[in-house]
Amino acid sequence: MSVPILKQGDYLIASIQSALTDSEVLKLRDDLADRVGNFRSRGIVIDVTAVDVIDSFVARSLQTIASTAKLRGAETVLVGIQPDVAVAMVQFELSLDPLLTALDLEEGIAALRRSTGGVDEDGR
């Protein structure tokens, strides 16, 4: 199952709906790289609320997405990491650098606005 990618203004939102195979992760990586270029997006939000395992391959793929996007001037925020997944990632000692992380979609978009020099709705 491929991951739907929505364009919302300057940002792309990829919402992962279920457990992904490695090839689906790679497809997401390539799709995002294409769209960031096509749409000249300034930010990507990847929602992993429904993801129950983030292992080294997924983490590395996400890092690649973020690094590639960064080269094209876009920040990437990972949102919706579940408590148990967060514990597993930390215990595994996985790094997500240079991704940003935020609690949920709303926070993710707010984080993008701040880091890409935009302004929050509440004027911060």
């Binding site: 490695d22 129950d52 395992v53 983030i54 292992d55 080294s56 391959f57 408590p83 148990d84 997944v85 514990v87 597993a88 215990q91 595994f92």
Partner: peptide
């Protein structure tokens, strides 16, 4: 616990990938 189950699933993911 749910967290332990996630740790197990993540470890399985790694060694399964080594096989693939």
């Amino acid at each position: 616990s749910r967290t332990d189950a996630t740790l197990v699933a993540t470890a399985i993911s790694e060694i399964a990938r080594n096989i693939v």
